[in-house]
């Protein structure tokens, strides 16, 4: 499974998201490759799940894959809930 975390430049917000998601998935014993990306070079990339700040949602309209938008990027519970839900949906299909 490949998960992209996105932000404008690829080493601030997206890196923070990656760190959180790494921790969450490790705790749950889920294996995934989590890649921080900047919006510009992400265009056209195919991943299973893309995680981004809410404010970036408009850039991801029509993305062919699951999009998870996070409002509070330091709220581990919000991140956990949303990412696990997306992974669950992925397994159902």
């Amino acid at each position: 499974m490949r998960i992209a975390t996105l932000c404008g430049m690829g080493f601030g917000t997206s890196m923070m998201l990656k760190l959180f998601i790494d921790e969450i998935l490790t705790a749950d014993g889920i294996k995934a490759q989590i890649i921080p990306w900047d919006l510009g070079s992400f265009k056209g990339q195919k991943v299973d799940i893309v995680v981004a700040p809410t404010d970036m949602g408009t850039h991801l309209k029509g993305y062919d894959g699951r999009v998870v938008l996070i409002k509070n990027l330091v709220d581990k519970e919000e991140i956990r809930e949303k990412i696990l839900a997306a992974i669950g949906e992925l397994k159902d299909t």
Binding site: G8, M9, D55, M56, N72, D75
Partner: peptide, 22 residues
Amino acid sequence: QVLRDMGAYAVIAPGIVLLHAR
């Protein structure tokens, strides 16, 4: 400039902004 170009997603949590460039 990053904030102007990319929007205010840098406000990562209520009341907290994380600014940076390249």
